[in-house]
Amino acid sequence: MSTVPAIEISGLVKKYGEVTALGGISFEVARGEVLGLLGPNGSGKTTTVTLLATLQRPTAGSARICGHDVVAEAALVRELVSLTGQYAALDEGLSAVENLAVFGRLTGLGGKHLKARIAELVEQFDLGTVRDRRVGALSGGMRRRVDIASALVTRPEVLFLDEPTTGLDPRSRAAVWDTVAGLREAGITVLLTTQYLEEADRLADHIVMLNRGEIVAAGTPGRLKKEAGAAVCEVTLAHRSDTARVLELLGGLELVEAPEESQAHPRLVFRAPHGMTTVAEAIARLDGAGIEVVDIGLRQPSLDEVFLQLTEVTP
């Protein structure tokens, strides 16, 4: 495998008039990896993708795809990449196979080569049962599978997935996750933008977090969670009426998540600076006060908590 990164960004800047969408970001993605690009709305995720896909030109800095500059060698870069946006770009009046054929012809494929490639994609994405059905009649998850398959007709080196599970139900989202995992196994480099932290935690080899056009954190999901700080103690109460008393009993611990009004059994999350020792002390205090607990335990910070901590918007 080539040692040249699939994606290489250095000091990338994009301005729209007086507004800075990207303030000079830099990162690399190795070939065959999945990078999760995270951040709140307006953080610069989609701008980064459009610059890499040659749909826009950077204001300053550089970006390369498989060693090729996205500005100076834009035509060559477009042959190496493919992009799916937040919403499936399909003709809903055509069947799944017909959509694949259209994308193939638009990229110069035809005849037996296109037919063979479509057959491969139908098998790879498990589209056999819907291949001849009108796309408009398919589920959201299945439409997204067809959309991603269309982006792979030309066998790109790098695939950009811009929030691919937006608007999908949990079952359809899980199906797309399986699809992305399959892309990694096939050796395709994937840059995935998403606001679903569970999605990035499950799929990404590395994560880059953006906020206001700047990188606020980068690393593996495990490393980012470890750097977020101490573990937390989760306490789930049997009775909501005990909430105030528990807050008093555990007042020496930092409360990081208060219970929601909708919870039948209130769940409180406290910082646990001393790990299981903190949990043991909490159990002793609650037991001594006769507080009935449904569950209590120690866990490491979630990627959601890392995300909120690092991308918190301040006035």
Rank of each mutant, 00 (worst) to 15 (best):
G44E: 00
E8P: 08
L237D: 04
E120A: 13
V146P: 00
E98W: 03
L109D: 02
E33D: 13
L76K: 09
E198P: 06
A230R: 11
L55G: 05
R202H: 13
H265D: 13
G23I: 09
P164C: 07
L183C: 09
V70S: 02
E18W: 03
T193N: 03
L197W: 00
E214C: 12
R144G: 06
G108V: 11
A137V: 07
L298Y: 04
V153F: 02
A63W: 03
E98A: 15
E79C: 09
I291L: 12
S2G: 07
T166P: 00
R285H: 14
V13E: 10
K225A: 08
I118S: 03
G110C: 10
A53P: 02
K45H: 11
E18C: 10
L183D: 01
L168Q: 08
R105W: 08
T189V: 15
L197T: 03
G111C: 12
D295N: 13
E198C: 08
R105S: 10
S139R: 04
I188G: 02
V34Y: 04
V122Y: 00
M209V: 15
R173L: 10
T194D: 01
G111Q: 10
E305V: 08
F125L: 14
L12D: 01
R171I: 13
A75I: 05
E92V: 07
Q195K: 05
L286Q: 04
T154N: 13
Q263Y: 09
L22P: 10
P259Y: 08
E261I: 12
G110H: 07
V293M: 11
L83S: 02
P156V: 04
E123P: 05
L109S: 05
L250K: 02
I296K: 03
E185R: 15
G136D: 07
L159V: 15
P266V: 10
G39S: 10
S139E: 06
I188P: 00
E281G: 14
D287N: 14
E214D: 09
Q195D: 12
V279N: 01
E33L: 11
L121W: 01
A231I: 02
D147I: 06
L253F: 15
A204C: 14
R223Y: 12
T314Y: 09
